[in-house]
């Protein structure tokens, strides 16, 4: 599986590169691109957030052997939910991740490294959903559900052996 990281809005190139470089070895390769989207079309004024279920539909279907993942800095929500870190089409090889709520709580180099690792982990998570994986009970597996940014730190940007086996059988 190859990965296409698509910037939705402004994405620091260094960040996208770091995320791509941090993906597990089970991915064959990847590339970085930009998708010109009008974020305001999915913007909810009363909530001052972007509707993730609207935004994900702007991502075109990837060709076979590829997963497409949108990367954005806007605050995402889903109807009925106050916020999400990201969403994806289960088995549809499309997803989005926002770093809005993953930002570091401190101004140190360690906190910045932690921030990059969080985004990478959530990218691996949504890519996993895109390939058909559901949440995993293994605490440090990327497919474990995290509801807090600090909870993302407990995971590794990798799939556990059970999830890898599931991926191989899909």
């Amino acid at each position: 599986m190859n990965v296409r990281l698509l910037g939705l809005g402004e994405v620091p190139p260094k960040l996208a590169e770091a995320v791509l470089a941090g993906l597990p070895r089970s991915f064959a390769g990847g590339e970085i691109g930009r998708l010109p989207v009008a974020l305001e079309n999915c913007y909810d004024r009363t909530r001052a957030q972007v509707d993730a279920s609207c935004l994900i539909e702007r991502i075109p279907d990837p060709e076979p052997g590829w997963s497409a993942l949108g990367l954005t800095g806007v605050d995402l929500f889903m109807p009925a939910l106050t916020y999400v870190f990201g969403i994806s089409h289960l088995g549809g090889r499309r997803g989005i991740v926002s770093w809005f709520r993953l930002r570091a709580e401190e101004e140190t180099a360690e906190a910045q490294a932690r921030f990059t690792r969080r985004i990478t982990t959530e990218v691996v998570h949504e890519l996993g959903h895109g390939m058909g994986l559901v949440h995993c009970v293994v605490p440090d597996c990327a497919m474990h559900r995290s509801l807090w940014p600090e909870g993302v730190d407990l995971k590794r940007p990798e799939y556990c052996p059970a999830c890898l086996a599931t991926l191989a059988s899909l």
């Binding site: 889903m78 109807p79 009925a80 939910l81 559901v134 949440h135 559900r145 599931t166 059988s169 899909l170």
Partner: peptide, 30 residues
Amino acid sequence: MMTMPVRILVVDDEQHIRNSLAAWFREEGY
């Protein structure tokens, strides 16, 4: 693949709400 016997039904007249909640719970494996 893991099969969870737990079945959830989302009942809401707003299509947007029930679909996004259904997607959220499917990711959980329900």
